[in-house]
Design a binder for these strands. Structure first.
Lengths: 193, 193
DNA sequence: CTACTATGCAACAAATTGTTCCATAGGAGG
DNA sequence: CCTCCTATGGAACAATTTGTTGCATAGTAG
């Protein structure tokens, strides 16, 4: 028993439009009326799918707020592994809908417990990935165990978010290289000194 | 010719309430109606002061979005100067209305050019302060001129914002100490080698 | 061809947003 | 204390937005 293709079609076109509005004009402007005007879908149909404004906004958020899933790579060397993780993150922040929506998710998280949960869960996963990379480097003997891994992770990840969310400056390969240089120099310096 | 005290009084109580709503429930809920209900000030009076919702929200934002002005301290040593700057920033993020509102400012900046201007101007000032601290350290010969100052500044400032905006974890003196340890170790390591 | 169901449309109710007018109360200056 | 000026409160109002309902139509599954 498959789903009626009309349901699928309207959901898709409606959320496409909602997503665009959310990115271009902010959550304030995501309403049944706006989506209806943008898509031609009648308001009543939209209300059938999402009973109120809150539902519609949540759906639009969920559509694109799903963070990029970064497959791990821990075969070394450290710099290469880190570059892989941070490169994907950088690319996502720079060029995907997820990156565009990130500021609004941050704001939502400050007043909405559910949104905050989503974001912290995600960060936990992200940190775990970076931690695995460092653990592998320690296993290989590339760095020693007394490196302040937690802080390094924080710095590694904080920088890209900071540039995107607060400085609004794009990141490129060159920036990533310098960032990695610094991170690795810290890791080596504090390693088994 | 002084201003009518009634004007001042209503502006103050109204914006106090607007600020509270903005922090607790988000920009979406800052409306003339909500402020009226919260303060007892009649809607018509509020409309006289702020002709539409946009004005009211902007006013509420400006009220608290004015970032902390951090008096510079460049008399060394480097770690002490940095601690002063970052300590004030950390305190502001932790405990002031400005810190509570920061996420919403970030979101506003992503769709509103004016808000973005405010935030980038502020960051420019902030960076200049930290830069002055490093310049003074170089002058004193504490570190040498080939330290990657720009990156250090970015890391120094990015971490507190990241913790506040994205991780939603409080910072304490202990955290700040570890953060400074790492920053100074980088500065020294890359200095004059 | 026959049920079934999602859509569009129009009419509607309700809440919100913004405007206007007037009486009143509070402040400034003599 | 008296007078002028102005800000406020309140009510009535229009306009817009938000949410609801009923029905005809068109697309879907069997």
């Amino acid at each position: 028993m498959k789903e009626d293709p009309r349901l699928i079609a309207t959901r898709q076109t409606a959320l496409d439009a909602a997503q665009k509005i959310l990115m271009d004009e902010g959550v304030l402007h995501v309403t049944h009326g706006a989506v209806s005007k943008a898509t031609g879908i009648s308001r009543s149909t939209l209300y059938r799918h999402w009973p109120d404004a809150r539902c519609l906004r949540d759906a639009a958020f969920r559509r694109i707020a799903t963070p990029p899933n970064i497959p791990p790579k821990t075969d070394g060397p450290l710099r290469s592994d880190l570059r892989w993780l941070l490169g994907v993150l950088m690319g996502a922040l720079n060029d995907t809908p997820w990156g565009q929506i990130a500021p609004q998710v941050v704001a939502a998280a400050s007043t909405d417990a559910e949104a905050r949960l989503v974001i912290t869960e995600f960060m936990k996963d992200r940190f775990a990935s970076v931690e695995a990379v460092f653990a592998a480097a320690i296993d290989r003997g590339e760095i020693t165990a007394d490196v302040p891994v937690d802080q390094l992770i924080e710095l590694a990840v904080a920088a890209p978010y900071f540039r995107k969310l607060i400085r609004h400056e794009a990141m490129d390969e060159d920036w990533l290289d310098r960032h990695l240089d610094l991170l690795c120099s810290i890791a080596k310096t504090n390693s088994g000194q």
